[in-house]
């Protein structure tokens, strides 16, 4: 058990180091210069003032030292919990910008991932045993899972937002409201949240439903299902076993799909101008904001790694074969 988790932790640690390094590298490979961009924004008329300003900003952002030292500094500051200052929203610290956006992204992602997984598995399992349901779930599921997140988002925004007028199509809440714990504000928050959530939910739901349907059919063909049927076991018992066994590959699927879902959430946020991390990433790229980009990427990486780790732990709990494998290895 210890050995298993020790090995897993090592793998996660290595992934983390590589991801952080890539995070640091990618913005620096982008064309353009953030400091120059800030200078043009300040519209200083005196050309002599530009050089000292440039020097000042480069020092503020730590860009005045050699590249390798920037990298070391980055790690040192990161471990202190400091992710630098945003260029786009200068002089707000990156951590503050991200903390403001994270609740929106999590409020979208966590319900979308969990609900689609649960609902998809239930519906898929039902489809595997009802012909008429199978005939509807399967084609609908294929269409949904093949739909790009943002395209479905646009479709929903157009149909339910613009034509139907039921839901707002942009923003986290209406501009005329102030964030507060009132019923009106929470209701408004919910109506803005619903469409981005729905587009994420539907696409993921289709994939899970199809996966579960196929897995259940496969499980019901398995020897143990046959044997139980031969011994006159009730269908409900066989289905219960099959469902539980079919959940295991779906759990692996969830671990694999997390990254895709997060990426989907990011583009969906852009479609709905939803003030989460995806929206931040777009702004950061548009403004050459190295530090904000690093920060948001880092957050996404940590989130995906943590979620994967949780799934690893769950897997050990639910699948005896993994447990046995661990004992065999030690």
């Amino acid at each position: 058990m210890h050995r298993y988790f020790g090995r897993k932790t090592l793998i996660y640690l290595l992934t983390f180091i590589v991801a952080v390094t890539l995070n640091w590298l990618i913005p620096r490979f982008m064309p353009g210069d953030p400091v120059l961009r800030m200078l043009t924004r300040t519209s200083v008329s005196n050309p002599e003032a530009i050089a000292p300003m440039r020097e000042y900003y480069e020092r503020v952002f730590g860009l005045d030292v050699p590249l390798w030292q920037q990298y070391v500094n980055y790690w040192v500051q990161l471990l202190k919990g400091n992710m630098g200052v945003s260029v786009w929203l200068f002089p707000t610290p990156v951590t503050e910008v991200i903390t403001r956006a994270v609740p929106y992204t999590l409020a979208l992602l966590i319900p979308a991932i969990l609900l689609s997984w649960i609902a998809g598995n239930k519906v898929g399992a039902l489809a595997a045993r009802r012909k008429w349901l199978d005939n509807t779930v399967l084609p609908v599921g294929y269409v949904l899972t093949a739909t790009p997140y943002m395209w479905l988002g646009i479709l929903l925004a157009w149909s339910l937002g613009i034509v139907g007028g039921i839901f707002p199509v942009a923003g986290g809440y209406s501009f005329e409201l102030r964030p507060e714990w009132s019923l009106a504000f929470v209701g408004n928050l919910f109506s803005h949240w619903f469409l981005p959530f729905l587009s994420l939910f539907l696409v993921a739901f289709g994939g899970w439903a199809i996966g579960m349907r196929n897995l259940i059919i496969y499980e019901l063909e398995a020897d143990y299902a046959n044997y139980l049927e031969t011994l006159g076991a009730p269908r409900s018992l066989i289905r219960r076993y099959a469902f539980r066994n079919a959940l295991l590959p779906q759990l692996t699927g969830l671990a694999l799909q997390l990254g895709v879902l997060v990426a989907g959430a990011l583009v969906t946020e852009i479609v709905f101008a939803y003030p989460g991390l995806g929206y931040l990433i777009l702004s950061a790229i548009q403004n050459q904001d190295f530090f904000l980009l690093q920060g948001t990427f880092l957050f996404v990486v940590i989130g995906v790694l943590l979620a994967n780790f949780v799934i690893d732990v769950i897997y050990v709990i639910v699948d005896p074969r993994v447990r046995v494998g661990m004992q065999g290895a030690s």
Binding site: D223, Y224, N226, L228, N245
Partner: peptide, 12 residues
């Protein structure tokens, strides 16, 4: 059954 090796549900 012929398949006694795999006749029992592996996760129970």
């Amino acid at each position: 059954p012929q398949y006694a090796m795999s006749a029992m549900n592996p996760t129970v």
